[in-house]
């Protein structure tokens, strides 16, 4: 009971701050939009881009924008040590990790609602043919990426090198997830659901990286 109350209080606080400042959303979205238009510019007229390349670029775009916002999300927590209050919560400290995952998932999901259709238009990718499976793979892939990111930002929170450490760790750690998401997305763009093994890789990432940090967070959270 305590856990859920604290969890929703933390998520509510994150959303309130973001709603008030819009710093995270505006900066991440601006960065992502810039990337879309740059991609559109350099790939203009390349009609022979494969579905695999389409899917790969889309996921790189989502991960870059997601990483940008992950790094910035902790700024408000570091302001005058608010992050350390998490070690005092009267419930399991993993609540902080799950609150981060939920808040960040919401930010990235809203960003994707803007980005994916825009990407489709700018690069001429016909995502409109299969919205259902695309939404599912976007959701599953984003959950995995956000969970990995929330774990790594928690680990690197007190490090002065976190803005370098997190990208250095997150991309190698996300390679199987990225490959799975790209394989599945490219299959969907070609009109089928893709191989079950790649769906399983994405699903396994979600389960592993949502579960593992929850178990280890007490060790991670020490000041």
């Amino acid at each position: 009971m305590n856990f859920w109350r604290v969890l929703w209080s933390m998520v509510g606080k994150d959303l309130r701050i973001e709603w008030r400042t819009k710093q995270l959303f505006i900066s991440s979205l601006s960065f992502a939009l810039l990337l879309v238009f740059l991609m559109g510019l350099v790939l203009y007229g390349s009609g022979n881009m494969t579905r695999f390349a389409d899917a790969g670029l889309l996921w790189l775009l989502i991960m870059m924008a997601g990483l940008f916002s992950l790094n910035r999300q902790d700024d408000k927590e570091r302001w005058d040590g608010a992050i350390y209050a998490a070690t005092l919560v009267p419930t399991d400290r993993s609540v902080l990790f799950y609150a981060r995952v939920i808040s960040h998932l919401l930010f990235v999901a809203v960003m994707e609602i803007v980005l994916v259709p825009l990407y489709s238009v700018v690069l001429g990718t016909s995502i409109q043919v299969a919205w259902g499976p695309i939404i599912l793979v976007l959701l599953m892939g984003t959950i995995g990426f956000v969970a990995v990111g929330a774990m790594l930002t928690s680990l690197a929170l007190t490090s002065s090198l976190r803005e370098i450490l997190v990208p250095l760790m997150i991309f190698p750690l996300s390679v199987p997830l990225l490959l799975g998401a790209v394989e599945v997305t490219s299959s969907i763009l070609q009109g089928n659901w893709g191989k079950g093994v790649w769906w399983a890789v994405i699903g396994a990432y979600d389960v592993l990286f949502l579960g593992l940090p929850g178990l280890l967070y007490d060790f991670i959270a020490e000041v």
Binding site: I17, T21, D80, G81, Y84, A85, P90
Partner: peptide
């Protein structure tokens, strides 16, 4: 209850919102 050199407050929340947040955390 703990009071350290850092305030554990959120700069982008008002005084009332900060206290209410902690009051909710403590149930």
């Amino acid at each position: 209850g703990v009071l350290l050199d850092a305030s554990f407050l959120y700069g982008e929340l008002t005084a009332e919102e900060n206290l209410f947040y902690y009051a909710r955390i403590y149930g």
